[in-house]
Nucleic acid binder design. Sequence first.
DNA 1: GCCAACGTTGGC
DNA 2: GCCAACGTTGGC
Length: 140
Amino acid sequence: MRYWLFKSEPSAWSWDQQIARGEAGEEWSGVRNYQARNFMREMAVGDRGFFYHSQTERAVVGLVEVSAAAHPDSTTEDDRWDCVDIRALKPLARPVTLDAIKADPALSDMVLVKNSRLSVQPVSEAEWRRICEMGQTDPG
DNA sequence: GCCAACGTTGGC
DNA sequence: GCCAACGTTGGC
């Protein structure tokens, strides 16, 4: 199993909206960046991910699971763009803020820190465990 | 709201 | 194939 991080502006698509989709999950559509798309193509059903709120909140707020492998993005006719589906697993007991992540030496290599603009990114198993721990949440 | 960082586009 | 111009993202 691999681990990922999905970034969203809460004003565009929030964790609450993601939860509301329930087991059915939702297309992670709208990504128009090759690096992010390529990561989604590497994902397998059952992979885990963090749901991160950018902009106003800047915190990891929940855990998600990949519920469908990469397929054409339904929001465009352009066949270059694929996306996966994800479903919410559970919120973090405590959101882990970007400030907290930056302050932790164990997380200094995170893509979130090094390339803040990448909207879909890989997370190492160590990073996964550490952030779940900081969020006082069972890593699953 | 600003601006730095980055990715993409298009002219040459 | 290079690079300047431009658009977008996201932290601050």
